[in-house]
Simulated scan of single mutants.
Amino acid sequence: MITFKRIDHVHIAVAPERLEEAKIFYTEVIGLELIDRPNHLFKTPGYWFNIGDAQLHIGVETPLPVSTRHTAFEVGDVDAALSYLENKVKILEEPIIPGRRRFAFLDPFGNRIELLQKIDL
């Protein structure tokens, strides 16, 4: 059983040449607050925004066999969630982000979903 707590963030992708246009749209048109993104952790550029008690992440994407688009859910016990899912779905490794334990998986339709648990540093 997985105990879901809340959605953490949603990640969307834009074409590299439209990233700055996306930043302007989400800050000036939509009115989201631009927040710090640990850019040194990522190979591609992007922006993060506050959106209520969650975040919107925007990145660039070139055609890949697995999309970087995903929804992330905070769970009560990420290790239990991993144990529950590891024989049911394809598990994807994720880069380490300080303060979070996480993994992702593909649903049967190719959608990427991330599960995470916040941890004290």
Rank of each mutant, 00 (worst) to 15 (best):
59 G>F: 00
74 E>T: 09
120 D>Q: 12
43 K>N: 13
64 L>I: 05
12 I>W: 03
41 L>C: 08
46 G>I: 03
52 G>E: 05
72 A>Y: 03
102 R>T: 04
117 Q>W: 12
117 Q>C: 14
80 A>E: 10
6 R>Y: 03
32 L>D: 03
108 P>D: 02
69 R>Q: 15
75 V>F: 09
59 G>V: 00
116 L>F: 07
102 R>F: 02
47 Y>N: 05
31 G>Q: 02
40 H>R: 11
26 Y>N: 03
77 D>N: 15
58 I>C: 09
55 Q>M: 09
28 E>S: 08
112 R>A: 12
90 K>F: 02
46 G>W: 00
110 G>K: 03
62 T>L: 15
104 A>G: 12
82 L>Q: 03
40 H>Q: 14
115 L>Y: 07
53 D>L: 08
26 Y>G: 04
51 I>T: 12
6 R>P: 01
56 L>N: 04
28 E>R: 06
7 I>H: 04
121 L>M: 07
99 G>W: 02
79 D>C: 05
21 E>S: 06
99 G>D: 01
41 L>K: 12
60 V>I: 14
39 N>T: 12
63 P>W: 02
39 N>W: 06
54 A>D: 00
38 P>Q: 13
42 F>H: 13
54 A>H: 04
22 A>R: 10
55 Q>H: 11
106 L>D: 09
46 G>S: 06
17 E>S: 11
22 A>Y: 07
10 V>W: 00
28 E>A: 05
42 F>P: 05
73 F>E: 01
36 D>I: 07
9 H>L: 10
61 E>D: 06
17 E>T: 04
107 D>V: 13
3 T>L: 07
106 L>I: 12
17 E>M: 05
94 E>Q: 15
117 Q>L: 13
103 F>G: 13
111 N>F: 14
64 L>D: 01
19 L>H: 03
20 E>H: 05
78 V>W: 09
46 G>A: 03
77 D>T: 14
73 F>P: 01
47 Y>P: 06
105 F>W: 02
113 I>G: 11
73 F>Q: 00
51 I>W: 13
45 P>R: 15
44 T>F: 15
96 I>S: 07
17 E>Y: 05
88 K>E: 09
84 Y>H: 14
40 H>L: 08
29 V>M: 03
72 A>C: 15
78 V>T: 10
26 Y>V: 08
52 G>M: 08
77 D>W: 14
76 G>N: 11
6 R>I: 00
99 G>I: 05
